[in-house]
Amino acid sequence: MKRTVLPFCLIVVVLLMSCGHKKRTSQEPLKPLEVGVMATMDGLPFLVAADKGIYDSLGLKVNFTIFLNETDRDASFETHKLDGIVTDYTSAAVLQSKGIPLRSVMQNDCCLCLVTRVGGKMNSINQLKDINFCTSKNSFSEYAAEFVLHKAGIPLNMVNEPEINQIPLRLLMLQGGQIDATFLPDPYASIAMNIGSHSLITTGDLNINQSTTIFSRQTLKKKSESVKALIKGYNLAIDYLLSHPKSDWGNVLTNQLKVPENVIGLIALPSYRHAQAPDLGEVNKAIVWLKTKKMVKDEYTGTELVDSSYIENDNNPIQVREKIKKILKRHARRKYQ
């Protein structure tokens, strides 16, 4: 009997040491992230999570770079200046088809509005013939433009599609009558309508959503826990946005997205949900469209584009509310110390 006791004790000690080691490992500091977002509403929850101290409470340091056009955003990602970006499936597929190792880890909530030039008389998508319909190359806006033209039965050769990547420039040209229509995200769509543009239809009406967050494979390999914390903070920010008036978070719109104060009250939030797994149906539609545009090779399938493993089940709503209260109290104390 004595011979069996010693090995058993040793096993217990080893197991305890192993458990202790795992605990220390789980408490290692999270590695910082560099994330690029457009000055649009699909990235707002990330920015609110940073502003309200949610990421601080999770022990995550995130530096957000805000872009006004997709070209600069994608170039920063390609040159490894950013770990991840908020983009769309079309842009993500083009980047991956060029040999850039990346994964789409979540779907964001975004809505584009088809707005017309100030003073224009269009009131239906059936009137989109023989106009300057401005888009951004290989992006959600171009995808949505061709989607709505197909819905209206208008051939592409009956529309001039100038490509302008800078969202503020598209807004200015719309205001000046240099273009007739374009898809704009909020807050720019609300700004356009505030100065006299009209909205004909939205991507929500068309039931399409191409917005997603992607990360490089290297980041997912070396900073996976940080990416999980980023998404957790995103979900907490969604709960915050849906439970607090604009007066509590409007400063993010004015200070970071540069929204005029007189427009803030006009902006409607997208139908925000907790982070969703990438929509494979939307991914496939984007790839088929890109192939018709000859922007990706026929052999590109996109089977390695999506990684849904970072999406967790929603937390208990009561627990979430209590957690947000604690985070905001800690943030307020730090702010006034």
Rank of each mutant, 00 (worst) to 15 (best):
L149D: 06
G99P: 01
V105W: 02
I131H: 04
D248R: 09
V227Y: 01
S136Q: 07
Q337P: 05
T135S: 10
L58M: 03
G196K: 15
R103H: 07
Y336W: 14
R170S: 05
Q319W: 00
L280Y: 13
E322P: 01
N251S: 13
V86Q: 12
L47S: 09
Q337E: 13
K228T: 14
H331W: 10
F64S: 01
S199L: 09
S199T: 12
Y240V: 01
V12I: 15
S247N: 13
T65V: 02
N157K: 11
L220T: 02
S91H: 03
I208W: 14
Q218F: 04
T90C: 15
G233W: 00
S271R: 11
C9M: 15
G53L: 02
T65A: 00
I164A: 01
V227M: 02
F64A: 01
D307L: 11
G250R: 09
K151P: 08
K223D: 03
Q337H: 12
V37G: 07
K52Y: 02
I201T: 14
L30S: 05
E225H: 15
N209M: 11
P260F: 12
L15F: 15
G153E: 08
E34Q: 13
M173A: 06
D56Q: 07
T87M: 03
D42G: 06
Y272C: 07
W249A: 04
I66S: 01
P162I: 04
V263Y: 02
G177R: 10
P162M: 04
I201V: 15
V35P: 00
D186L: 07
S197F: 12
K285T: 06
T87Q: 01
K291W: 06
L6E: 12
K129C: 03
L47M: 14
M122A: 03
P45W: 04
D42Q: 08
G281I: 08
P185G: 08
F147S: 14
E282P: 01
K258W: 14
V94F: 07
L305P: 07
K98T: 12
I167A: 08
T135P: 06
F67I: 00
P270S: 04
K22S: 13
N255Y: 07
S91Q: 10
L10A: 15
V14Q: 12
K294Q: 11
T219K: 02
I214Q: 03
L169E: 11
R333C: 08
L112R: 11
L6I: 15
A145Q: 03
L257V: 05
C111N: 13
E299R: 12
I231K: 08
R334G: 01
T40D: 05
T219M: 04
Y300D: 09
P45M: 06
V5M: 15
L241I: 14
N132D: 11
A49D: 03
Q178G: 02
N235W: 02
M193W: 03
Y336I: 13
S190T: 09
L220H: 02
